[in-house]
Lab assay of single mutants.
Amino acid sequence: MFKRLMMVALLVIAPLSAATAADQTNPYKLMDEAAQKTFDRLKNEQPQIRANPDYLRTIVDQELLPYVQVKYAGALVLGQYYKSATPAQREAYFAAFREYLKQAYGQALAMYHGQTYQIAPEQPLGDKTIVPIRVTIIDPNGRPPVRLDFQWRKNSQTGNWQAYDMIAEGVSMITTKQNEWGTLLRTKGIDGLTAQLKSISQQKITLEEKK
């Protein structure tokens, strides 16, 4: 169930391209415009997507990853294993993690069937560096609404905000991946996880038929 919630949630996290980005210092504006741009692209490019579902990787690479804190999220997933990894191991892992996100997020976007969304009203940021933004996803086919909290983090150097995690039903996506990959990290280390991520990233994206 959580895996499905995570995939549905990713439908609204794909941010804007650099040329049309919203105010990078306001995570609420980023979330709002990102959702609108993403849904528009999914709707307008269905012919290309249906002809070649792996085209979704391109959308992810162009529109999402430049505005997601990939390395920060990847380091959180590694936890204690990050500090013990060599620079070469980290570089290989982050490259594999990025390719994994292209496949995983692309597969999530393949679930698009006309969903709509509501974003919580903007709250004062103050001096906060981590801000959760509640998004409610509404399914046109009558499924119950899904309420999610996207975690946005302020870059201490640039002042810009980027998304790095999502919490559904009190469970963090980062925590879920830590639990899912924990045994592999304990037995085969970061190299074993890197190899698995490379394998997963090679899987073809498949479209979910409308139910």
Results as ranks from 00 to 15, higher is better:
residue 12 V to R: 00
residue 33 E to W: 04
residue 107 Q to S: 09
residue 139 D to L: 15
residue 45 E to L: 04
residue 52 N to I: 03
residue 175 T to A: 06
residue 60 V to Q: 03
residue 76 L to N: 01
residue 114 G to C: 11
residue 126 G to R: 11
residue 67 Y to Q: 03
residue 51 A to R: 12
residue 61 D to P: 00
residue 129 T to H: 08
residue 64 L to C: 01
residue 10 L to T: 04
residue 175 T to N: 04
residue 33 E to M: 06
residue 22 A to N: 09
residue 70 V to H: 13
residue 190 I to G: 05
residue 51 A to H: 14
residue 176 T to W: 02
residue 148 L to F: 08
residue 1 M to C: 00
residue 206 T to N: 12
residue 6 M to N: 01
residue 53 P to I: 06
residue 80 Q to G: 09
residue 154 K to S: 08
residue 131 V to A: 08
residue 104 A to W: 15
residue 180 E to H: 02
residue 117 Y to I: 09
residue 35 A to K: 00
residue 178 Q to H: 07
residue 126 G to W: 13
residue 176 T to L: 01
residue 173 M to G: 00
residue 67 Y to D: 10
residue 128 K to G: 09
residue 27 P to Q: 06
residue 121 P to V: 11
residue 43 K to F: 09
residue 135 V to D: 02
residue 211 K to W: 14
residue 62 Q to C: 05
residue 72 Y to T: 00
residue 67 Y to F: 11
residue 115 Q to G: 08
residue 186 R to M: 06
residue 205 I to Y: 15
residue 49 I to C: 14
residue 178 Q to D: 03
residue 92 A to Q: 10
residue 144 P to W: 04
residue 107 Q to W: 03
residue 110 A to G: 10
residue 33 E to T: 07
residue 205 I to F: 15
residue 206 T to G: 13
residue 90 R to N: 04
residue 3 K to N: 06
residue 206 T to V: 09
residue 142 G to N: 07
residue 152 W to Q: 01
residue 198 K to R: 13
residue 15 P to F: 13
residue 118 Q to D: 07
residue 179 N to D: 07
residue 106 G to I: 06
residue 62 Q to S: 10
residue 159 G to Q: 05
residue 168 A to I: 15
residue 130 I to H: 04
residue 168 A to V: 10
residue 146 V to T: 08
residue 10 L to D: 00
residue 42 L to R: 02
residue 97 F to L: 03
residue 108 A to S: 08
residue 132 P to M: 14
residue 162 Q to H: 08
residue 48 Q to R: 10
residue 67 Y to I: 07
residue 31 M to P: 00
residue 128 K to H: 04
residue 101 L to N: 15
residue 150 F to M: 15
residue 167 I to A: 08
residue 103 Q to P: 15
residue 31 M to G: 02
residue 137 I to G: 02
residue 118 Q to V: 12
residue 158 T to I: 05
residue 173 M to L: 14
residue 61 D to E: 12
residue 18 A to W: 13
residue 16 L to S: 03
residue 42 L to G: 03
residue 148 L to S: 05
residue 186 R to K: 00
residue 85 A to K: 02
residue 106 G to S: 15
residue 177 K to Y: 07
residue 180 E to A: 02
residue 46 Q to M: 09
residue 72 Y to L: 01
residue 133 I to Q: 06
residue 70 V to E: 12
residue 16 L to N: 00
residue 48 Q to N: 13
residue 201 S to H: 14
residue 105 Y to L: 03
residue 175 T to V: 14
residue 170 G to C: 03
residue 95 A to W: 07
residue 37 K to D: 11
residue 7 M to W: 08
residue 79 G to Y: 00
residue 172 S to N: 02
residue 162 Q to P: 00
residue 5 L to E: 00
residue 182 G to I: 09
residue 170 G to R: 01
residue 189 G to E: 12
residue 171 V to K: 00
residue 169 E to G: 04
residue 69 Q to G: 11
residue 82 Y to A: 01
residue 62 Q to T: 07
residue 29 K to R: 08
residue 113 H to K: 12
residue 172 S to E: 00
residue 159 G to V: 08
residue 152 W to R: 02
residue 96 A to I: 15
residue 22 A to F: 09
residue 178 Q to Y: 05
residue 185 L to K: 15
residue 143 R to V: 03
